[in-house]
């Protein structure tokens, strides 16, 4: 699952990291829309050529390359099967475009997720009028994933020590082997949830209807610039798509 790394926040200090998450979200959505508008190789390549310098600016190019390597099997798969099975007039051209589109889409969103700390994300959601409880639930999920993973390993060890053979048998047996892990994990999690609730309650969670925030996000000039450019690009590409017939360059097969 190494290709999922591009969706994981990396602690860096870069121009992109310092942008307001809302500006970055807008930028990511625009570039995703643009990559969905076109299904020709050339425009999709242009999108990628624009996105890659942004990745460099976010100091995350190496991470992106590593993930793309992890994704390469899937990409080859898409390429081969679309070429063989697609009803399009020149299938290879079509499938290359599809593959490029997938890469462009992933890159757009990875630019967002790579550079937005989960805390900033939840703060951005709150300031976009999402209720605090929901935004907080999301950030708490992030908080407890590693803790639960650790717990799952501990339970697995405990069950193995009692003679449960977790990695033996046919696929059906293996699926059934999950039961002795999952059941204790659920029980432990419910208990943990109760104790977390106690602690949150003791610190006044949800007590005041006017909750304050120590760090509020604020839109700066550069954020407006990003939003403005993104908007411009969006309008321009929609106009081109609708009114200007593109010279269609494609592979002949």
């Amino acid at each position: 699952m190494s290709f999922l790394e591009v969706f994981q926040y990396t602690r860096q200090d870069s121009i992109i990291h310092r942008l307001d998450p809302r500006a970055k979200l807008f930028m990511a959505i625009v570039s995703a829309i643009v990559s969905l508008i076109f299904l020709e190789i050339l425009p999709l390549l242009i999108i990628l050529i624009i996105l890659i310098p942004l990745l460099v600016a976010a100091k995350s190019l190496r991470r992106w390359l590593r993930s793309m390597k992890g994704l390469s099997i899937l990409l080859v798969f898409i390429l081969v099967f679309n070429t063989l099975l697609s009803p399009a007039p020149n299938p290879l051209n079509h499938s290359i475009a599809l593959t490029l589109r997938l890469i462009a889409l992933m890159t757009s969103f990875s630019l967002f997720f790579l550079t937005v700390h989960p805390d900033e994300l939840s703060q951005a959601l709150i300031q976009m009028r999402v209720r605090f409880e929901f935004a907080f639930a999301m950030s708490m999920a992030m908080r407890y994933v590693p803790t639960l993973a650790q717990e799952a390993y501990a339970i697995m060890d405990a069950q193995k020590a009692r003679g449960v053979e977790l990695d033996k048998g046919n696929p059906l047996k293996r699926i059934r082997n999950i039961v002795p892990i999952i059941v204790p994990l659920i029980i432990v999690s419910i208990r943990r949830a109760l104790s977390i609730a106690e602690s949150m309650e003791s610190r006044g969670f949800g007590a005041s209807p006017h909750r304050t925030y120590m760090n509020r996000l604020s839109f700066k000039k550069k954020d407006w610039v990003v939003v403005f450019i993104s908007l411009l690009v969006l309008v321009l590409t929609i106009y081109i798509r609708l009114y200007i017939p593109l010279y269609v360059w494609s592979l002949p097969f």
Binding site: R203, F205, A207, S208, H210, R211, T212, Y213
Partner: peptide, 13 residues
């Protein structure tokens, strides 16, 4: 987290 929940002023927090 605690002071924010109770609506304490951000500067004070």
């Amino acid at each position: 987290f605690g002071p924010e929940n109770l609506g304490v002023d951000p500067v004070e927090v």
